[in-house]
Design a protein around this nucleic acid. Structure first.
Lengths: 251, 251
DNA sequence: GACTATTTGTGCGTATGTATC
DNA sequence: GGATACATACGCACAAATAGT
């Protein structure tokens, strides 16, 4: 078969790209179902009359796209019929989710054990009525400095043992929890909304009641479940949340 | 130089991985500063006494980690001293940035050419006073349906030719622009804030003036610059923006 | 466990194409 | 045009992991 005669998006593209396009087409059309193995490299060499180098470049792209998993000695398994997602918001560390400097000061106002109210339960990923630790705090530019945001954090009971360490904690709480619990954060989610401030929050932030707040709800989870969830209220007049998205370089 | 004698993480790892580790070390230590070019492939072949294949595999890893940008004929530029970031917010398509169904209806209210005011200029990435196209619109659940958000979009003059097609556009405007201009979107940014609604916006959304709005500013750029930027005001009482982050599998 | 065939991984040498300077 | 540097491509060899005998 002569590759150049096949219309897969232009005859003068590199061969490995043409082969990649054909394989993608076959995969998404179901010719190679998910869970099955692709033909071997050598078989593709024969089919397309190209060298193993060329086949491997094509397969490498499939791997980059998250469609193919290869294992030495075993073969190449189809793991997805559609390519990897296109755009990513990159976060160097979870601290990037918080967009303020790490040397800010966390002013703990109250720590208490509570039974989770239904409303908060769904938000933090816990069961209503179960025991959690609630921490109310204000983040400031520095000790006794300007308030940045009001935070209400919720920690599940299985991690309540770290309570004594919280007041001395520098940096974000999730880092303390990750270290002490030995549970690795694998997952984080964030929800952003806008709402008027309650009196207590407005007061803590030095704003008028019902002033506009940007509310961020964050949840950090390990395989065992939620590590910590927190609501953060920022003054709408002095805070915006920004993110950059880049197209996946493999495209 | 004998590669195996250098302790960069074990003597029996593949050569290209050892070279990759050494180059990473050099980069993060500042031996090759950001913005500078790495030595050429052939120079590394000589230094490490390996084939070009091996050097290229090592460099490929640096590219995968987002530390290196290579350009045919030009060289390999250091673009970061640290590897790829840890967490990603995955966006299947740019439409995911908009978190409403694509079959919503865009109700165009006004299209006009303007000279960019200074305030908007910085936001959309244009020059103050330059000519842009301004489009004011309301997105609705369906034609004559409930309003979802108010949008003000800005398109640079070089793309003003698509103006006649805008009223017939189904789906997001950035898709129309990407198709017509032939410019590929490589970059998108989003800024999220909270503010009270102006009278006009409150009116269009059926809310009281000064009701709380979540404001999203989005900018889509190609290599030639901004393709389109838009402000989106959503009612704070009925909209939250959410995202999921996963730990990068490559770590 | 030992052995073998298969399959992908690593590595070399070489040649030619193509973008950049 | 020429020199340089990365990209594509072939052929070959051997290593390492896997699966089955």
């Amino acid at each position: 078969m002569v590759i150049q005669d096949i219309d897969t998006g232009g005859p003068d593209r590199p061969r490995y790209q043409q082969i990649y396009a054909m394989l993608r087409e076959r995969i998404s059309s179901g010719a190679y179902p998910i869970g099955s193995n692709l033909p071997t490299e050598v078989e593709f060499c024969d089919e397309f009359n190209v060298s193993r180098y060329t086949v491997r470049e094509a397969l490498r792209r499939l791997v980059d796209q998250g469609m193919l998993a290869r294992r030495q000695g075993s073969g190449s398994e189809i793991i997805a019929t559609e390519p990897h997602r296109n755009f990513v918001h990159q976060v160097r560390s979870l601290a990037d989710l918080f967009q303020y400097a790490l040397d800010t000061h966390l002013d703990i106002r109250a720590i208490r054990k509570i039974r989770l109210p239904a409303k908060i339960a769904t938000a933090v990923g816990g069961e209503a009525g179960s025991q959690w630790l609630e921490i109310k705090s204000v983040r400031r530019t520095h000790k006794n400095g300007e308030p940045i945001c009001v935070t209400h954090s919720y920690i599940p009971d299985r991690l309540a043992g770290i309570e004594p360490d919280i007041p001395d904690c520098v940096g974000p709480l999730y880092a303390l929890l990750e270290e002490r619990s030995g549970e690795t954060i694998t997952n984080a989610s964030q929800e952003i909304g806008a709402e008027p401030m309650t009196k207590a929050i407005a007061n803590a932030l030095g704003r008028e009641p019902r002033a506009v707040a940007l509310r961020l709800l964050r949840r950090y989870s390990s395989r065992k479940g939620t590590l910590i969830a927190s609501f953060n209220w920022h003054p709408g007049d002095s805070f915006t949340y920004s993110m950059e998205l880049q197209r996946n370089p493999s495209h």
